[in-house]
Write a protein that binds this DNA or RNA. Structure first.
Lengths: 147, 147
DNA sequence: TTTTATAACTTGACTAATCAATTGATTGTG
DNA sequence: CACAATCAATTGATTAGTCAAGTTATAAAA
């Protein structure tokens, strides 16, 4: 069964790990009544607010349609407000979201960090980050299809 | 804004990369009328067939419910068959799936590999794999919650 | 033999995405 | 001014997944 190149082994590992840690993160964030995807979106809004839906979609690598649906849910929960502003809609956080993030942010960051701090030393983490950054950046250049 | 530890930077990178490469892979597999998730499942069945739904669910890290739904779709498309065998259902590939995988497998493996071969040399790939394996294995031990 | 347990699978309600088609808002141009 | 162009956001159909409650099949006890 000599089909597995090193590349495909890495690929599988990455997929399984992110899949699993994502589930664990969902579990962890339940205490704040948030999902990982919602936390991700709220963090981006917090950093870049006010911003448009298109801009936000790009930051979290989701389509327009995807961000539209996500924001409907977040708006219904009272985490964000959107106001029509020229032909775009401008998104910002509510006080409720601010308060929750204040608490959730340090805990979630510590949670994420623990996946790596427990098994890799500082140098290894830097190496992992550097390698993944190169791989990621390269994949973004790939985007233009070849056939 | 000193909230970003190295760990959370790595985490974000991994999420964004897997998310993006997953989409690209979906795009790539369109020529075989398959999604990445379907390809993943079919590959596991191919390697371990015949196997039960529970076993398969564990291999692709999905819940029982998730695998049940996925298999309904794959069965409707004529890629797999399930036969009730004792109180479990035993899954195996159809000739159709065999034929498609014969073609798709080498191409998909080459596709996955290209994400890494283009930017990392052999040694760097080994390093990346080793580090991710440690991180992944560790996260699996974590599973038991601490509260 | 009728209950009771239990393991394997399914299903309903939901989150999260995608793509492609459509609706809204704001331009220009004829 | 009306009409086409265009950019932003929404929506319908579908895939993919979760959790928790409900089935179904088999085995074991009463």
């Amino acid at each position: 069964m000599r089909n597995n190149t090193m590349g495909s082994l890495i690929w599988l590992r990455l997929m399984r790990f992110t899949n699993q840690s994502n589930q664990m993160s969902n579990d962890f964030l339940k205490r704040f009544d948030l999902t990982t995807a919602q936390f991700d979106v709220l963090m981006q809004v917090r950093i870049y607010q006010p911003l448009t839906q298109m801009e936000l979609a790009e930051k979290v690598t989701v389509t327009q349609g995807g961000i539209s649906r996500m924001l409907v849910r977040l708006e219904n929960e009272g985490y964000i407000v959107r106001k029509q502003d020229w032909k775009t809609k401008t998104i910002s956080l509510t006080a409720k979201a601010d308060a929750i993030l204040e608490q959730a942010m340090p805990e979630q960051l510590a949670f994420q960090t623990s996946f790596f701090d427990d098994v890799l030393n500082e140098e290894e983490q830097t190496t992992l980050y550097t390698l993944m950054t190169r791989v990621h950046k390269h994949s973004q250049k790939k985007e233009l299809p070849t056939e």
